[in-house]
């Protein structure tokens, strides 16, 4: 079992069912990121525990979630709507996960990358990756934790 895997699954399920009235199901394996079609959103936790939570979704699922969240007709979600929807989802999931981590720590505002390029977090490692299915489409939540190796030390080791 990965770090906080059960809790991440539980919170993601809760957020999707309360916020969107969508059922989600865990999938085995790893989410395959498309170079052109994936949208990523993240929030970061800073303080006693340092890391980031990243939500990765195909753009078709982002459209579905945004239309559902804001009661929009198919094809009517603007980029602003999508930013708000994904930002809100990752913020809610991140806020719940933060509550399980040592205090004091703070949650950042959401950060989004829309152009198929994944967000990268240098000096971290993935500690948990949860793969899900929603409305017939895959998505994932990944938890990154800071690697405690000062930059100067890493510089010497290259």
């Amino acid at each position: 079992m990965q770090f906080l895997e059960k809790e991440i699954q539980q919170y993601t399920h809760l957020v999707c069912s309360i916020l969107l009235d969508f059922e989600i199901h865990p999938l085995p394996g790893t989410f395959e990121q498309s170079s052109t079609d994936t949208i990523s959103g993240s929030v970061q936790i800073s303080g006693k525990w340092n890391g980031a939570i990243m939500l990765s979704l195909p753009s078709a699922l982002v459209n579905t979630l945004t239309e559902k969240m804001f009661s929009l007709e198919p094809g009517k979600a603007s980029v602003e709507d999508k930013k708000d929807a994904i930002g809100e989802m990752v913020n809610m999931i991140g806020g719940n996960i933060k509550a399980l981590l040592p205090d004091p720590s703070t949650l950042s505002t959401p950060l989004l990358a829309f152009e198929g390029h994944s967000l990268q977090f240098p000096s971290t490692k993935v500690v948990t990756h949860c793969h899900f299915e929603c409305q017939g489409k895959p998505f994932a939540i990944s938890l990154f934790e800071r690697v405690e190796k000062p930059f100067k030390e890493r510089l010497k080791s290259k």
Partner: peptide, 18 residues
Amino acid sequence: FLSLPAVTMTQQGFRIPG
């Protein structure tokens, strides 16, 4: 508190709602 840096390849810069 300062967060970890995040990096992405982009045309539009990061999108930061709110």
